Amino acid sequence: MTTHYDDSFGLTTTWDDNGNARIRITGDLDWDTAAELTRTAADCLRTEPAPRRLRLDCEHLTLCDSLGLASLLMIHRHATEVGTRLHLTNRPAALQRLFETTGTSHVFGDAAPDAHDTDRGNGGEQGHAAAARAPRPPAQP
């Protein structure tokens, strides 16, 4: 059996004039690539001062497995610790289904604003991605 690494995975980090970071994810977020995303996001979150917002642009994300989900959860935890708002933009339907299936949609529940909404009012939370907003699951008795 031959193991083939998908070399199409890539991360592109950009910063806007307001000090907000954006990481564009391309390819599969899985066993082979999740640690790279976690490190890249941690590097952004370690800057002084930490960014107000960190956007993970998922437009070109092709797959997210359990380790990819774990990476996203670790990034969320780290962002929360340093006071940075984490937004997942351009979520593919498969990623939203993963969140719903695993009960993590409430963690990433705010529909991330479009990149053009960077600094409008409340942060643009009513951007075009609002249709991807998943309801919070009811509290268990």
Rank of each mutant, 00 (worst) to 15 (best):
R77D: 15
N90Y: 10
E81R: 09
V82E: 00
G83T: 00
M74G: 05
N90T: 14
A93D: 08
E100K: 05
I75D: 11
T104R: 09
H76S: 03
T101H: 06
R77K: 11
D110E: 13
N90L: 09
T101A: 02
F108H: 03
P113H: 13
Q96C: 10
L95H: 00
A93F: 09
T102N: 10
E100Q: 13
V107F: 14
R91T: 04
G83P: 10
E81W: 05
R91D: 00
T80H: 12
G103Q: 14
I75F: 08
E100S: 08
A112D: 07
N90C: 14
V82T: 06
L98N: 07
L95Y: 03
S105P: 04
F108V: 02
D110I: 07
R85E: 10
G109C: 02
H106E: 03
M74L: 12
T80W: 08
A79E: 03
A112F: 06
V107Y: 11
L86E: 13
M74S: 04
T104V: 10
S105D: 07
T102I: 12
G103T: 02
P113F: 07
T89L: 12
L88G: 14
T89F: 05
R91W: 09
T101S: 06
P92D: 03
L98Y: 05
H87M: 12
R77G: 15
F108R: 04
T84K: 15
T84V: 14
R85A: 15
M74R: 12
P113M: 04
H78W: 02
A94T: 01
A111W: 00
A112M: 12
T104K: 05
L95A: 01
A93Y: 07
A94M: 12
T104N: 11
T101N: 13
H78P: 04
A93E: 01
T84Q: 08
T84S: 05
V107E: 08
I75P: 09
D110S: 13
H106C: 00
R91L: 10
A94W: 03
F108Y: 06
L88Y: 11
T104F: 11
L88N: 03
L98F: 09
A111I: 01
T80V: 03
A79R: 07
V107Q: 12
A112L: 02
E100C: 02
M74I: 08
T101Q: 14
H76E: 11
T102E: 05
T102R: 05
L86V: 04
D110M: 13
R97M: 13
D110C: 11
P113D: 02
A112H: 02
G83I: 13
L86F: 09
T80K: 10
R97C: 00
H87E: 15
A94E: 08
S105I: 05
V107H: 15
L86W: 10
D110Y: 14
E100M: 00
A111Q: 00
F108T: 01
L98E: 08
F99E: 00
R77E: 15
L95E: 00
A93Q: 10
E81D: 14
A94P: 05
R77L: 03
I75M: 07
I75W: 03
R77T: 14
R97S: 11
T104M: 10
A94F: 15
R85S: 14
H76G: 08
L88D: 07
G83L: 06
P113N: 02
P92A: 04
G109R: 04
A112I: 02
R77I: 07
R85N: 13
T102Q: 06
Q96N: 01
T101K: 04
E81M: 11
L95G: 00
P92I: 04
A93G: 10
A79P: 10
